[in-house]
Design a protein around this nucleic acid. Structure first.
Lengths: 107, 107
DNA sequence: TACTATACATAGATTCTCTAGGCATGTCAA
DNA sequence: TTGACATGCCTAGAGAATCTATGTATAGTA
């Protein structure tokens, strides 16, 4: 099905944020909550494994920095990540359009 | 997260179809493909277990009918199913709006 | 001192959808 | 009459995505 690539999933959201600027995990959680008016309230148990996977896939790269006594792990999107973002954005548009077509076919 | 109820999942699509008229499984597969211009090409291995689950949940009811030598299992939506459809439609609108808010925040 | 916010992480479970099969009938062409 | 294809239902097992629950540690605040 069209659901194979999980359109509109968290990968898309994270890659979108990172396409705008470098961010660290905790920041992504708060930023997503803000932009979505709390529709997205990502759990850390969801986010961190996901970031590690994206890094392994080569879609993002990371570096650590000490800020205010805390070590933060900043992520930036790679060239490959931008390609993935483009694909996922297209998949989302296609998928959302198809759902709406089913919902609205009857008027 | 907002993904808890799997917004825009197959439950929503099936309940929408059944809210319009009674249908049998195979018919749903072809109808969804048609409406979505083949974005949705549901596998039987996905659909039938899902219908059985919806029946167990009381969201749909079923009866069998012999048509052209074949036994077809027709499904109709129940009152409870209509409630579920309403909820899932709202969840989808909320979710899709949130994704678009994240994608478009930067312009 | 205790609570909250910040900041990272892993383990295990659940849920959804998929792949890959099986069974049976009717129609049409070779 | 044999084979292919569409119709029509089904189950078992696997994979992927996300969740719950938990652990660690620092800084600020009541």
């Amino acid at each position: 099905m069209a659901r194979e690539q999980n359109p509109g999933g968290i990968d898309l959201l994270i890659l979108q944020l990172l396409s705008e600027k470098e961010m660290y995990g905790y920041e992504m959680v708060t930023e997503l909550a803000k932009r979505s008016q709390s529709v997205f309230r990502l759990k850390e148990g969801t986010l961190y494994p996901l970031l590690h996977r994206l890094e392994k896939e080569g879609a993002v790269s990371a570096y650590e920095e000490k800020v205010e006594g805390r070590v933060r792990r900043y992520y930036r999107i790679t060239r490959r990540g931008r390609g993935k973002l483009r694909e996922q954005r297209e998949a989302w548009v296609r998928y959302a359009g198809a759902v709406n077509a089913v919902l609205c076919a009857a008027g």
